[in-house]
Design a protein around this nucleic acid. Structure first.
Lengths: 148, 148
DNA sequence: TATTGTTATACTCTATAACTATA
DNA sequence: TATAGTTATAGAGTATAACAATA
């Protein structure tokens, strides 16, 4: 079809916010305590890295340090994460998930993926392939955009 | 490739928030006064419909009426939109953009689309096609999700 | 001095519940 | 009674600027 970069930009700008709203609504209506998108992303990152620092998480999630500091406040208050001073460099924090945090992340993922999955289930598989491939393209393009 | 609906859901859940953050950051760093994503979407909807009511906009943007009422408060305060009582049904509001509102929408779109476009420019055109087609699939699937 | 993180401050977004005005 | 919208209330997300502690 040979779509231009401009056409591509227009479509992404119109559609991505709509999809995002679906995701946010689903996460927030999670039974047994909701969770915000930034909280979810933070839990996700921390679960996959070994005791990351605050700035590391902020960098990868794409937020400023004060914003991330607030988000971690909330996670710690809800007993989903722990925040300890790093051994060796007392300026740094070492973040980790509690058992409860791991469980919350798992159930939030499951519920939200189930919601999305149900929307995709009736699609012809060629269209699902298109969506997956597009996500991989976007992931690559935006990979190094998270820097502040 | 035959990806499953679950695989599709996983990819969307991981990638869409990242793209969304890029869009938000670009909109908010707009020279000459920033604008939030919900404000942008509201301006966009109002610009394309004839004097819509508050509930109409709320429905299509995917927010509750109180939330939309606040957002319109902000737009009116910034002289980007007008809000008048509907002639014939005095319960309803009639929304419209000011000249300034049209200009702001136009420049915000231009700037943000230029930012995205520049990211897409170096892609092989087959990948751009994939992205555009995926957006159209997602648009269809999520079209009727905006209901509260 | 440079780095890491928090606090202060100020907005916006968002929802639910309660209310007002109109139909 | 039902509909359209606002207000009250509460909490989260977000940024910039200023600060504290450590290296």
């Amino acid at each position: 079809m040979e779509y231009s970069a401009d056409e591509c930009a227009r479509e992404v700008l119109e559609v991505v916010p709509v999809v995002m709203r679906g995701i946010r609504t689903e996460l927030r209506s999670h039974r047994g305590g909701d969770i915000s998108v930034p909280q979810f992303r933070t839990l996700f990152y921390v679960s996959r890295h070994e005791g990351p620092s605050l700035s590391q998480v902020a960098e990868h999630v794409g937020l400023t340090m004060p914003s991330m500091s607030r988000i971690v406040d909330g996670l710690v208050a809800r007993r989903l994460a722990t925040r300890e001073t790093h051994q060796g460099d007392r300026r740094r924090m070492t973040l980790a998930l509690t058992t409860h945090g791991h469980a919350k992340l798992r159930s939030a993922r499951q519920t939200t993926e189930a919601y999305l999955s149900q929307l995709f289930r009736t699609l012809p598989s060629a269209k699902r392939d298109t969506v997956v491939e597009a996500m991989r393209v976007l992931r690559t393009i935006f990979a190094e955009t998270g820097s502040r």
